[in-house]
Design a binder for these strands. Structure first.
Lengths: 189, 189
DNA sequence: GTCTATAACACGATAGAC
DNA sequence: GTCTATCGTGTTATAGAC
């Protein structure tokens, strides 16, 4: 386990604040107060507010890209690939709930890394859609609109950051399983 | 049809901008430029930036409350009540995509109306959950975790504002129907 | 109803002492 | 590594002319 630098602490604390009010509404003074220091002192560890946002978002986006790569290259059925995607979201979100809030809500405030982030996101969605389309071809998945299916699943998975902190009693495996059930097999008896 | 006042125009334009960057990152100068006037002129029609946010969010929140009231007081089965909830979200969102973005992402920047908004939202979710729980009792809905079901449905429905503008070819009825299919009956063949 | 000018303050970031 | 002090700019909002 790599040791936590002061910069890491700043990023972690910032993610907490960004989750509550969003990147734009959190000031460097807010962040400094939360760290118990003065705003000017932050700049001994980071170069700009923007760098903090990048530190939060990009690493998570890359974790999704890596996870998706493992899934598309696996030999699983399409349905099982979707279950692995659910697990991927549950695991990443459970490990960094606050960071997921920034990824979802503050990505548009990225400056230098905006194009890179959008590239990763677009590729992720394209892979997700391809899995569903293959599942339809193989008659594993209903022949309804694949985009509606992806939209519905992805909306739920992207909202996990709001929900996981409220249900600390639920472990990641149980949550991934019940979510897969609901998302894939529906809710009617 | 009530005629559009200048204040309404400001609110509509603001919602557009808030959708792209969020309430905090949009300045009164941005808004004025988008309206083709100077920032100071805005204050002839509105009293504060905050009032604009309130004008966007509260009316939509009340529309959801009213819609839900009609649904819980109807004689429909639980599954059909859920389908009506899907229609409610599709209709409100289709009529005010930009406003839905603010409702979802900027509600925490409400000041005087924050408590009122939270009250409406909590009551809405309680009613939603009660419908699902009744459906489980009546064996219409699978006996899995009702909160997971609500979370999943609500996440998808709350994300509609991102998706509807990209699919202008799809009409509201068709979308509500395919969404209901996916959310209620699942995706596996 | 819109303008120019400006008040009053908050913002991100830097300089330099300790 | 943190501090005080401050720069330069951006912010919401008001005053008063047209």
């Amino acid at each position: 386990m790599k040791q936590k630098t002061r910069k890491d602490e700043i990023i972690t604390t910032a993610a907490e604040l960004f989750k509550e009010k969003g990147y734009s509404a959190v000031t460097m003074r807010d962040l400094a107060t939360a760290m118990g220091i003065k705003a000017a002192s932050l700049y001994n560890h980071i170069n700009s507010k923007q760098e903090i946002l990048k530190g939060i978002i990009i690493s998570i986006a890359e974790a999704f890209t890596n996870g998706m790569e493992g899934i598309i290259n696996s030999e699983a059925t399409s349905i099982n690939k979707l279950k692995h995607i659910v697990e991927l979201h549950v695991n990443i979100t459970a490990n960094n709930t606050n960071g997921m809030a920034s990824l979802n809500n503050d990505w548009m405030h990225l400056e230098d890394q905006l194009d890179y982030y959008l590239k990763l996101r677009n590729e992720y969605e394209a892979n997700f859609l391809a899995i569903i389309e293959q599942g339809v071809l193989d008659s594993e998945i209903k022949n309804s609109n694949p985009e509606v299916i992806m939209f519905s699943m992805l909306s739920t998975l992207r909202s996990l950051y709001l929900w996981i902190p409220k249900k600390e009693d639920l472990n990641a495996n149980d949550l991934a399983n019940s979510l897969s059930e609901v998302l894939i097999y529906g809710i009617n008896d």
